[in-house]
Design a binder for these strands. Structure first.
Lengths: 189, 189
DNA sequence: GCTGCTATGTTAGTGCCGTTCACATAACTA
DNA sequence: TAGTTATGTGAACGGCACTAACATAGCAGC
């Protein structure tokens, strides 16, 4: 993708975001290089700075799109367990993107899509509590936050080797189901 | 620490590990630089390669010491909730080190200290299940793994801003207590 | 105590990185 | 059609991880 006819690219901003996702998918967050993104888009290494203030700014835009994709994935899932499976599966299928989304940034901004994703989880928790599928030790909000933490930890640990040692492995959905039922006694409907 | 009388440092390996921890504490994982570590130890930038094969190898040694510290911290805690609080507090007090320990490495090795830490958690879960403090939906092993995931997710999310949005904040111990009781109905003894 | 081996340090260099600056080109607007 | 603004380039900077050739010193066995 290094050839270009016109002097101006036309849609460089999106091309950079897409290229960044590509690199994250291929090589992971730690290997990400802004120069490499520019190379793939067929522009000079200085060009990205016309669209992003720096490397981190591009990664934030990539992360935002990640949150949107995640929100859509969660929306498609049904039930609390299905939603948990979708979360872990997202991390499993887009590990580089997932790490980029949740990398430790000192003063990370809130993401609208991230909020939407949480809202989806909240509704699932509410429904599960009302139907008695899970115990209601605490408010839906607090329970949803706690479950989010569980799913997130599960996803993060799943992206590394360690978890296998305790006999897990398996598909993301199985992981989520097993874990949620161990904590909440919930069963997939 | 840039002065030295003898040509040979004497204890460079440990000095590098300590310096690396210092940098992680000051600037975080993403800012870590091998050259900076060498500078602090008062040696040339090539010297570290006499003790570690590369930057990643040094970070792994640092991580191993981190696992040992974590294992000790968990050992000191009493009760399941106290242990959870200790886990989140460790991440809270050593964020750079924590990120380094759990960074996504393709083929991460198992850590003996990490296994020990899990063993401590497992015993706490066993005791809590036997005393009826938490429900026994699943085996102690599976439950312990699930709680580990929860604590880990909590710690990771706590290191970023996002969690505050849902009204958390507060001290690590409070976070762990609130979360575990929301999921398991467990109360601090 | 000298001699050689090996461990541990240095200096200088490579290539990649993120970032900036001065300048070129093209698209839009008056 | 002319001027302004948006978007690209090329060349440079310092910092990074890492390597190779060489220097020093600690430690054997003689």
């Amino acid at each position: 993708m290094a050839e270009r006819k016109t002097y101006h690219h036309g849609a460089l901003r999106q091309a950079l975001i897409d290229g960044a996702k590509e690199i994250l998918a291929e090589s992971g967050h730690e290997q990400f290089s802004l120069n490499e993104v520019a190379r793939r888009a067929g522009v000079s290494t200085a060009a990205p700075y016309r669209h992003f203030t720096n490397r981190d700014d591009l990664l934030s835009a990539v992360a935002e799109e990640g949150y949107q994709t995640l929100a859509v994935d969660l929306e498609k899932a049904t039930g609390l367990v299905g939603l948990g499976g979708a979360y872990v599966r997202f991390a499993h299928e887009h590990p580089g993107l997932f790490v980029t989304m949740f990398r430790s940034r000192p003063g990370g901004e809130a993401s609208a899509a991230g909020e939407a994703a949480f809202g989806t989880l909240l509704r699932a928790v509410l429904a599960a509590q009302e139907s008695g599928a899970i115990p209601a030790y605490a408010s839906p909000e607090l329970t949803a936050r706690s479950i989010w933490a569980t799913l997130h930890g599960l996803a993060v640990l799943h992206l590394q080797r360690p978890h296998e040692r305790y006999g897990l492995g398996g598909e993301p959905e199985e992981l989520a189901t097993t874990t949620l039922s161990a904590l909440l006694g919930v069963k997939p409907e």
